[in-house]
Simulated assay, not measured.
Amino acid sequence: MRVRPLATLSVVAVALLALAGCSSAGSPSASGSADPAASAAASLCDSVAASGAASDAVSVTGDVGSAPTVTFTAPLDVTGVQATTVVKGTGPAVADGDYVTIGYAGYDPATGKSLADYKSDDPPAPMVANSILGSAFGCGTVGSRAVITVPAANSNPAAVYVIDLLSSTPAAQWCQPQAPASGAPMPTVTWDDKGVPTVTVPSGQTPPTSVTEQVLTEGDGDTVQAGDSVTLNYHGIKWSDGTVFDSSWTRGQPATFTTSQVVAGFGNALVGQKVGSQLVVVIPPECGYGTATTSNGLGGQTLVFVISLQSTARG
């Protein structure tokens, strides 16, 4: 399972690969999520980490939105999460839950060497407290650049990140699902005698450019709310070639996660649906795994999910 990285991970547990949005899994969620209740209890504006000797020791030059020139004397003693604002942006302040785009680069505090070249093509992630973005910016302004140091935790090494806050979109406007337009091509779903779906993508048709969902069967159970923990079965294919990349039905066990722990298009499609419902959802790249190539092969892909909701519980 694949959680949207960066914003949902605890700042002391985030690894470089998680920050970069890499994963060996193809499905919409993964391990490593933060406690949603803890995130809700903290104020985004109050979540900014204090600056300290380590973050202040990092010198950064260059324009926001482009690769920075970073220098510091190694080894840098990273013993806690520290954040120093390098550039204060002049754009709008971000609010809790806003979807933000970022640029970032990572460095090894022990050697000063690059861990990740500057990257700015990941899909947007929600801005929440108790996250590396919350610790770097809080409710800061678009156009800001920050240095944040993250100590080693579990199997994740210590790291220094330079992060640019490039844009912000209110959650209510980001990747919200809509019904198929009249006459628009949609995948078809058939079920075998065990209730396992097969999905067929319309041949030669251009996929929708926004999150599009179609309710196949409407349930009569509780309605899923944002942040709920849901248990469901799902089956995911690529629109481009119909390849199945993950399926809880195939594994023989439903998945459980919160609506905020998955890619935006998947999570938003669940909100407002009733337990017992079955639906098909088409998710364009920017609402899934982004437009760039990723190690899991899902970057740049329009994804199709069949979902069968089994239960929901308040987060």
Rank of each mutant, 00 (worst) to 15 (best):
K238G: 03
V244E: 05
P177F: 10
S182R: 06
C175A: 10
T258V: 10
A93D: 10
Q301C: 05
F266S: 01
T101F: 00
G106M: 15
T231G: 07
P151E: 11
I307W: 00
V211K: 00
C287Q: 10
V64G: 07
I237V: 13
Q176C: 05
V11M: 08
A42Q: 15
V280T: 15
D46W: 13
T200E: 15
G103V: 02
T111P: 06
G80D: 14
V201S: 09
C45N: 14
L298R: 05
T61W: 07
I163F: 02
S295H: 10
A54I: 05
G204K: 12
D220V: 13
L17W: 15
V87D: 11
G183H: 14
A264R: 00
D56A: 13
N296Q: 07
V162L: 04
K274V: 13
D222I: 07
A57E: 07
V48I: 13
A313K: 12
T90K: 14
T188W: 10
S29T: 04
S311P: 01
L279E: 00
V87M: 09
L44W: 15
S39P: 02
D77C: 02
Y234N: 04
T294I: 05
T188Y: 04
V244A: 04
T243L: 09
V48D: 08
S66L: 05
A38R: 05
L232M: 08
S203N: 12
S114Y: 07
T69W: 11
S168G: 07
G227C: 13
V128Q: 03
P285M: 10
G80W: 13
Q253T: 10
A41C: 04
S167R: 00
Y107S: 14
Y99K: 00
G236C: 08
Q176S: 06
V142P: 03
A37G: 09
G112E: 06
L303K: 02
S47G: 05
K238L: 08
